[in-house]
């Protein structure tokens, strides 16, 4: 079916200098069982126009990482106890709170996992968008802001936007709500856009449209994107680099192709093997990693994957592995790489 239908062409990619640098970020939650180490010594950076994917098991700390970058981790339980978040050369962890309100939205913006938490059920979509847009287009009247809202919604593929704008969130389908939230997040033209599972509620054609739109916005504005997802297909489509998180730590990181074609941490290998395929009929059970990740308030001293790893030996149980790196800058925390890859950092716990 190629005759009259268009085949999609990717917009051109331009990757620039480092915009955001995260160093040894640690956000702990103080709960009644003890200290939950949700974000435990993360290091990564994102360049202008680049998309970094963060993948990992449910509960491993992805959302907490995202929230920490906006300094929105839930208080009083959560505290960022160490680290630096350097945006355009300045550590935003050192900025006073009033300034953070400006940084959020204008510099770092976020699209949340659950669109309902970003939409207020008692106001119409139009009212909420006008309010959000009012922050960036100060002095513009309501009519002008409404016009902008309608334009952004149309750009996001919402049908009959001038009529839908009077709807309340409960009257919209999941996909439409997510497009409204996306429209609000890009309205401030941020430097870094954090997307926390923005497409989980969408079906594939809308997801494809949404991802294309994000890529177009990136090509137009050079925004850096941090894309949190558990969908390996989305990572393959969207990301230039990928970081794999497990139990509060990044256990593997590198160029997309390097990580996907040569997964080097046993967790990443298992993850890649459990993706079902739509190309074949399924007769057998899916491959699945047995067991569960350790509780983040009761972490083992050794490798955090050891209790589920088919290669684990005595050393793995004794000490957390250092970080090893291959020639292409692909890194992984696994004792099996000792002697094969270069050791670049001591264990950080």
């Amino acid at each position: 079916m190629t005759t009259s239908s268009e085949v999609y062409k990717e917009p051109e990619k331009k990757i620039g200098n480092v915009v955001l640098e995260v160093r040894d970020l640690r956000t702990y939650l103080y709960t009644k069982w003890g200290v939950t180490k949700a974000v435990d010594g993360l290091n990564f950076e994102v360049r202008e126009g680049e998309t970094l994917g963060i993948v990992g098991e449910s509960g491993c700390g992805k959302s907490m990482t995202a929230l920490s970058m906006l300094r929105l981790a839930p208080k009083p339980a959560a505290r960022t106890v160490s680290g630096q978040i350097i945006l355009d050369g300045e550590d935003i962890l050192q900025r006073p709170e009033p300034e953070m309100r400006f940084i959020r939205g204008q510099k770092i913006s976020m699209i949340l996992q659950d669109p309902m938490t970003s939409l207020n059920p008692v106001y119409s979509i139009g009212n909420q968008m006008v309010e959000a847009l009012g922050m960036y287009y100060q002095g513009e009247d309501n009519k002008g802001l409404k016009g902008r809202a309608v334009d952004i919604l149309r750009k996001m593929g919402v049908a009959a936007p001038e009529r839908r704008i009077i709807d309340y969130p409960h009257q919209m389908s999941g996909g439409m709500k997510q497009r409204v939230v996306g429209a609000m997040a890009i309205s401030g033209t941020p430097r870094v856009l954090i997307c926390d599972e923005p497409t989980t509620a969408l079906d594939v054609t809308i997801q494809a449209q949404y991802l294309r739109l994000l890529k177009q916005v990136q090509a137009d504005t050079g925004v850096s994107i941090i894309f949190i997802t558990h969908d390996m297909g989305v990572v393959a489509k969207m990301c230039d680099r990928v970081a794999v998180m497990y139990a509060g730590k990044i256990v593997e990181q590198g160029e997309l192709r390097s990580v996907f074609n040569n997964p080097s941490h046993p967790y990443t290998k298992a993850l890649m093997a459990s993706v079902p395929s739509m190309e074949h009929a399924h007769v057998e059970k899916l491959y699945s990693i047995e067991g569960q990740p350790p509780a983040l308030f009761d972490l083992p001293v050794g490798c955090r994957f050891a209790n589920r790893c088919e290669f684990a030996d005595a050393k793995c149980l004794e000490a957390y592995p250092p970080m090893f790196q291959d020639e292409d800058g692909h890194t992984a925390d696994c004792w099996r790489l000792e002697g094969q890859w270069k050791k670049v950092a001591e264990a950080t716990t």
Binding site: T205, G233, A236, L256
Partner: peptide, 21 residues
Amino acid sequence: AALTANPDSQREEIILRGEVP
């Protein structure tokens, strides 16, 4: 439009014309 976990996938993506009515 369905995505696969293969970064080198050459599958052709058909763009539907127009908006969802």
